[in-house]
Amino acid sequence: MGFEVGRFEGGVDEELICPICSGVLEDPLQAPQCEHAFCGACIREWLSRQQTCPVDRSVVTPAHLKPVPRIMRNMLSKLHIRCENAAFGCSAVLRLDLLPAHINECEHNPKRPVPCEQGCGLIIPKDEVRSHNCVRDLRVMVLQQQQKISDLEKLTAENKQQLTDQKREIQLLKEYMRALRISNPGTRVQEQPSEQNEVLAWVSSLQPARVTRWGGMISTPDAVLQAVIKRSLIESGCPPAVVGSLIENSHERKWPPGLSTLETRQMNRRYYENYVTKRVPSKQAVVVMACDNQHMSDDMIVEPGLVMIFAHGVEDM
């Protein structure tokens, strides 16, 4: 709804009057073809019932609406308006563009937030001070907070259940695949190509390593650092089929859920010592291969493995 015309000092140009509410335009929007302007709230409510211009009945949809020209916004901002709290004693007359800031600070505003004078600490609208009861309103606030906590706990429980169900489905799928391999040896041979034997042989050739400073883990290595590690992997005899995957998995966007964020990494630090890690030759980096870490949970390892790069703290065992 627009501003009451009677609140303004001097005349108001007809172009600044909303054809729907007959008030001075508030948050105005314009129809693109006919260029008629309306209060934003007025035209949206109108178009929710019929998608035509209220003035000339041309077709208009909410998506067609656009802001009014700058010259019209400037004309509106220069109008002088009386404060809406004039009935409560405010005598201020100010430019329309300054009105919102004034309303927030107006001492005559009955809805201005004020602290409770009885010491309960609540901030309440000025016109509710007389009816305010500290104990009652604090009790209402406590009940509201308890409801919010209950809703959050319910949502968390639902998310945990979904995660549990997903893990159960993954485990059932793994057991099904294992049963298929046992019952069909031919299939098992096909799923264990010579490339996998090459990976196992390469992993066995690497020097076991120990990470002493997990806090030095680099979660987002730059391209140059990744290129250096990739060259070292290739020189160590890493099968070409897995080099690309290992380097791609050196970035946290490809890490398993247990490492994917700083929060989860901090929570799971106690599990890090269970990793079987192999040194990337001559580098402050290790490979954590799935074939070496089958004892780890699914949220701590990815296939075929990942490279962890450190600023410091990698030692040979």
Rank of each mutant, 00 (worst) to 15 (best):
Q266S: 08
E15N: 08
G215L: 04
D127C: 01
R73W: 01
M217D: 11
K154W: 00
V203K: 05
W255K: 13
L180V: 15
V224C: 12
R269C: 04
K278C: 00
R270F: 04
P221E: 12
L152E: 03
G121W: 02
V211F: 04
Q145D: 00
R130G: 14
V286D: 13
I71Q: 14
I103G: 12
E117F: 03
E84I: 11
I71D: 13
E26M: 00
P54Q: 10
K254P: 04
G89E: 02
I17Q: 07
N197F: 02
P54F: 10
W202M: 06
G237K: 01
Q207Y: 05
I17K: 07
D27M: 01
R7M: 01
I247E: 09
N104A: 12
L143V: 07
A31V: 14
E128C: 02
E9G: 05
R269D: 09
P28W: 00
A285V: 08
Q50H: 06
E153V: 02
M308W: 04
D299V: 06
S48H: 04
L200M: 12
G23H: 02
M72H: 07
E175H: 10
R49M: 03
L16Q: 12
N197L: 04
A201W: 07
A179F: 01
C106R: 15
L155W: 03
A37C: 10
E191F: 04
E105D: 12
V142G: 00
R44F: 01
R213C: 08
C53G: 05
A179K: 10
D292N: 11
S232P: 05
S282F: 03
A227P: 00
P125E: 15
G119T: 13
M177K: 15
D97T: 15
A86S: 12
R181S: 06
E169R: 11
Q190P: 04
R231P: 02
N293K: 13
P185M: 09
R168A: 09
Q145Y: 02
Q294F: 01
W214H: 13
Y176D: 15
R269L: 05
I301A: 09
D316F: 08
R44P: 02
L180P: 01
I149W: 01
C116H: 13
I103M: 10
H132P: 03
E15F: 01
S22A: 09
T264M: 09
E117H: 07
E263K: 10
L122C: 11
I218H: 04
G244W: 02
L246P: 00
Q30G: 02
S297D: 15
S205M: 01
L98M: 11
T220M: 05
G2C: 02
G2V: 08
W214R: 14
I309L: 06
E198K: 07
V142R: 10
Q50L: 04
E128S: 07
M308E: 13
Q196P: 02
H64T: 14
Q162I: 14
H102D: 11
H36Y: 03
V211T: 13
A290R: 12
S194N: 11
V224D: 15
S205F: 00
